[in-house]
Design a protein around this nucleic acid. Structure first.
Lengths: 198, 198
DNA sequence: CTCAATGTGAACAGATCGGTACATATTGGA
DNA sequence: TCCAATATGTACCGATCTGTTCACATTGAG
């Protein structure tokens, strides 16, 4: 029962921080909404920052597990890379979608040295690593470059889904990803002169 | 002299909010760092929120003016679209670059109905409109789709430049943009079956 | 049952939040 | 020069911030 209470706190904190923001959410409000007293919170976590870090670690784990499983269902590596954007479409369609928790966290803690910012950067790095692995397995000539580009499209889709006027940013991103993917396999040279490509 | 003081306040507020965040920056801190008293601030702006809105409006104006001029220097519409990513590279290289102020603002004010969020969305809409105009002038078969995709790459590059491990997200985005751009003009049908494109 | 260890919550502490009251400094027109 | 209007700063307001104190409830072992 002891650890479940702590887990419940982290899960609820993740939800509320994600919904309302980090600075905007006070510990009193957290206590009121979760029904867990402040004393209990500060017994489990020395500070608000540590609770935020725990909430972000949970989000990192859950999100990557969810995303990677969705991608795996698509089968071969190349299809998995494209399937990421179908998963994004599902995510964006959720009623309580409010952008990416790590983008929000790094916005509120802009100092790169800050633990919260660093953890957010690590989350993105882990996503990159997965895409890089898949691109390598798919036999891409420049797997790192392809992974970076797909990640670019993913982040852009998230921002646009949250802030934009578009109907289907995940679909747009998928279309662009398909173009980029097919171009990446068409030519073996990884570095392209941009000027001549147009 | 009266309006200059107000302008100075807005300019400084823009800089400090951008650097430290909106909720994390108090009016007292703002007064201390700018040398302008709180009374003066609240004479010019009824609330902190109105000051934030003024700072964002200034940022919107300055950023679009700066970006569009940089793009114009590239010449014809198609080159202008690509030149956006060269401008981004310049921006990312600035010592005090800390992501996009409107992404940060919408992160801290996640409610879409909130004036700050709405203004941020409007900024992105104005960027889209400019890209759409250029894509139309360039004779793209699906100018709206092309504009959406290029904007996707732009936002992704911003996030990655702020949070990522990459050396040159603007360069990556430009390479991808060149691929997408050339593909957009190669085929006249705007809707592509993604599955067969791979 | 007893007792120690631990989980819990109401009330509080000092600092800071956004915002204001009011007295003073400054300024422009006649 | 004088006055009226405005710009400004100090001190303060209640509310809220993160974090703590301390008394009490709960629980498990012997």
């Amino acid at each position: 029962m002891r650890p479940s209470k702590r887990d419940e706190l982290v899960r609820e904190a993740r939800r509320i921080f994600y919904r309302d923001g980090f600075h905007a959410t006070g510990m009193d409000q957290l206590a009121a909404e979760t029904g867990i007293s402040k004393t209990t919170m500060f017994k489990h976590f020395r500070s608000k920052e540590e609770l935020i870090l725990a909430a972000l670690r949970l989000r990192d784990q859950d999100f990557r597990t969810w995303l990677f499983r969705r991608m795996e269902q698509a089968g071969p590596p190349k299809a998995q890379l494209l399937a990421m954007f179908d998963a994004l479409a599902e995510w964006f369609a959720e009623a309580d979608f409010r952008s990416c928790m790590f983008i929000k966290a790094s916005s509120e803690y802009p100092d790169p040295e800050h633990p919260i910012h660093a953890l957010s950067a690590e989350h993105k790095r882990l996503l990159f690593r997965h895409l890089h692995d898949l691109a390598t397995k798919a036999g891409a000539p420049d797997p790192a470059g392809l992974a970076r580009t797909l990640l670019l499209l993913k982040e852009g889709a998230i921002i646009t889904a949250h802030l934009g006027h578009e109907a289907d940013p995940a679909g747009d991103a998928k279309t662009a990803a398909a173009t980029v993917l097919s171009a990446a396999f068409r030519q073996t040279a990884p570095s392209v002169d941009v000027a001549t490509a147009v």
